[in-house]
């Protein structure tokens, strides 16, 4: 390991300038729970860490029922689940942030970092997709927005261009009679990475599903939004057969690989099982909402 520069940026402009100067070997440092491990294990060459934890915009954690949630890229998981109003409004996001790593990791790890690390198995991304999260990006050309489901482009790859950084993610306010649920499958009960995961969001209209969104983790090169499931469910009555069919559509959309964490067949199968269970969990929450 060679000496590495570290700069604590105080403003977005300073961070952008440092990232431009540093080029490809400059990386944004938020919680560091992925990045520092990657550098220490020689999996990523970095000459400059640009620490964004002291920039006011990246630390925003603001929620109100009219404007929704603004979640800064440097906000660690524990602040999210530690905020009762956020926890009540977005329980599907809490499912994910409360299971990432361990309690110790959650004290440091950020949802913004989870997104920028762009692991196909990232737990927080499917719930952000189903809650219709939008990424606010700042860079040399100013600001732009990208929906969460379009942010990751491949394993470890994102839409961020040279000098750009994720500032915050914005979520619309919760809808009436609507809620989400995220579930993953791991062989161990904690300290593990999803073999597969599924987030489901449903809005109910009495006994029927008015609209739904489903996204999967660890079954494709990126976290996978599956619009087919929502299209199928819209207007359907809640029955076992409908839920089963929704699971089958998720399974059909999954295109996983076999690796040390699980087999392709297992992941396909789990896409159906977890989607069924996530839908049932979301429906129950929506009925209580």
């Amino acid at each position: 390991m060679k000496p590495i520069d570290y700069v604590r940026a105080r403003t977005l402009d300073e961070a952008v300038l440092l990232l431009r100067q540093g080029g490809e070997r400059a990386r944004v440092l938020a919680g560091g729970t992925d990045l520092i491990v990657q550098v220490r294990e020689n999996r990523r060459d970095v000459d400059l860490f640009v620490d964004i934890k002291n920039i006011p915009e990246t630390n925003r954690l603001e929620y109100d029922p009219e404007h929704g949630l603004t979640l800064g890229a440097a906000v660690p998981c524990y602040r999210i689940y530690g905020n009762p109003a956020v926890a009540k409004a977005y329980p599907g996001l809490i499912d994910a942030v409360a299971m990432i790593g361990s309690v110790q990791i959650q004290g440091r790890a950020t949802v913004g970092g989870n997104l920028c690390n762009a692991s196909p198995a990232a737990d927080s991304i499917p719930p952000m997709i189903v809650y219709r999260g939008v990424c606010h990006i700042y860079g040399p050309q100013g600001s732009r927005v990208v929906p969460v489901e379009e942010f990751c482009t491949g394993p470890g790859q994102t839409v961020l261009g040279p000098g750009e950084l994720l500032v915050w993610i914005h979520f619309p306010p919760p809808e009436r009679h609507a809620q989400a649920h995220y579930l993953r499958f791991t062989p161990r009960n904690e300290m593990d990475i999803a073999v597969a995961g599924s987030a489901a969001y449903v809005r109910l209209n009495g006994e029927r599903i008015a609209s739904a969104r489903v996204a999967l983790s660890a079954v494709a090169p990126t976290p996978l939004f599956v619009p087919e499931v929502g299209e199928y469910l819209a207007g359907k009555e809640i029955t076992d057969e409908v839920i089963r069919q929704a699971g089958e559509l998720a399974k059909a959309a999954a295109r996983p690989i076999t690796d040390m964490r699980g087999t392709a067949e297992q992941r396909k199968h789990l896409s159906a099982v977890l989607t069924r269970r996530a839908l049932r969990g979301a429906i129950q929450r929506a009925q209580e909402a």
């Binding site: 062989p187 161990r188 300290m191 593990d192 690796d259 040390m260």
Partner: peptide
């Protein structure tokens, strides 16, 4: 859960305690 996971060339792929899964208290 515990196993040495090799590829067909004999590379040990899970040489970390994340992927060499020993049980935790939970």
């Amino acid at each position: 859960t515990e196993e040495y996971y090799y590829d067909e060339k004999g590379h040990l792929l899970n040489s970390s305690l994340l992927d060499y899964r020993m049980p935790t208290a939970l």
